[in-house]
Design a protein around this nucleic acid. Structure first.
Length: 236
DNA sequence: CTCTGGTCTCTAATTACCGT
DNA sequence: ACGGTAATTAGAGACCAGAG
């Protein structure tokens, strides 16, 4: 059954719920305790400081892991965009915490559902669209450090073997190749925009040895870093 | 200082298999 | 049939020596 408006309420979950799906999307914020969400392709352990979005039609099972209370927002299809087909596990950033606060305020003032929530629902929908997978965001923020598949797959709650397949679906390339591209693109920028030595740049983008950097660079770009700088460096 | 080339080690990707 | 795990393998990086 399709909802006619956004519904926001507090719910408590017990040990085991039947596997089911619904025609609307659902946003879950833990207020107290946590639970396990079983999906076809993955298991999520949802706990405080994280939130979760279940897209419409996504088969799932809830199982409480402790005494709990959740803030649930049911988002009818008309506030969502057709692209919002993927589930999303996200950290409660300041923004998300603010959204949760607003929802709780709204809940206290007007009760379980209100047409006013439609605007907030649309805002949330937009926010969900912009979210990049946690591990991909992490790669962009930490590419100079040592990144392992183990570490990245944990962020998405996937098995490392399955993570590679999932990552390829998201980006079109393997995690290792993607990290390499991020590093070498930054190296290209540093080569043309700074006068740092190649040894320094190689360290800054995450290579332990300049010889490894040079080889990787030639594989990627077809020419050596020095040649690249000579060809593309902006006039000083 | 930069790059090349060699060897060795280790990790990620793939595959085959197993349990549900 | 599907996802997890173990075994296998290819390729990348570490490290060193040496040339320009």
């Amino acid at each position: 059954m399709e909802l006619s408006h956004v519904i926001c309420e507090k719910r408590t979950y017990s040990k085991q719920y039947d596997t089911h799906d619904h025609a609307y999307g659902q946003l879950l914020f833990p207020l107290q305790g946590g639970m396990e969400i079983k999906l076809t392709e993955r298991n999520i352990h949802l706990e405080e400081k994280y939130g979760f979005f279940l897209p419409p039609g996504c088969l799932h099972t809830f199982r409480a892991t402790s005494r709990n209370e959740f803030l649930i927002v049911d988002l009818p299809k008309y506030v969502l965009t057709p692209e919002q087909q993927d589930e999303m596990y996200f950290e409660l950033t300041e923004q998300w915490t603010a959204i949760r606060f607003l929802l709780l305020e709204e809940l206290q003032n007007t009760g379980a559902s209100s047409t006013d929530l439609t605007y907030l629902g649309r805002y949330i929908s937009k926010k969900l669209q912009k979210k990049v997978a946690r591990s991909i965001q992490y790669i962009h923020e930490h590419f100079p450090s040592k990144l392992t598949i183990e570490q990245l797959s944990q962020m998405e709650n996937y098995h490392p073997a399955y993570y590679s397949i999932w990552f390829k679906k998201q980006t079109g390339m393997s995690p290792a190749t993607y990290i390499q591209h991020v590093r070498l693109d930054e190296a290209k920028r540093l080569l043309t925009e700074t006068s740092s030595s190649i040894t320094t740049i190689s360290n800054e983008v995450g290579f332990d040895y300049p010889s490894s950097f040079t080889r990787a660079f030639i594989r990627y770009e077809g020419i050596s870093p020095q040649m690249y700088r000579k060809t593309f460096q902006k006039d000083k």
